[in-house]
Design a protein around this nucleic acid. Sequence first.
DNA 1: GCCAACGTTGGC
DNA 2: GCCAACGTTGGC
Length: 161
Amino acid sequence: MTSAQPQYWLMKSEPAECSIDDLARAPGQRVPWIGVRNYQARNFMRDTMRVGDGVLFYHSSCAEPGVAGLARVASAAYPDPTQFEPASPYFDAKSPPATPRWLLVDVALVKKTRLLPLRTMRQRPELATMQLLKPGNRLSITPVTAAEWAAVTALLDAPET
DNA sequence: GCCAACGTTGGC
DNA sequence: GCCAACGTTGGC
């Protein structure tokens, strides 16, 4: 079974670090997803993501958290260079250079959308299954089902109410 | 700034 | 391998 079903993800980014506008201004409208230091999120990038997977680009830790755009996975996983940069906040002294602990993928812009606020998402029963909305969720990368993706993109396309 | 949730660390 | 302490996330 090699046929690839489309896969979808939600990826959190602090807009003070990299906003949807920063992504739109980046060379090739593409950025390396630096800074993931959680094994579960790393494993998603390393083991499950494929080039072309859909990404909900989510703004976290900001005044208006929510989905700010659509993107796609643009590379296979490769070592996150910031783990070896002592001046970086993402430096990890324990990561062996020969077998880097932390990986990343490149993410490319598909389109900036209007903001779909977290508070709105919480009100939509069709989104209730999203891992993002589960109590205590902190994972910065979570899988999104095809049904959830369809529901989110439908809300983004719908006129604001 | 608070705090709940939860992942990681390290002593034993 | 247990588990308490600690650190981080991230909404509010």
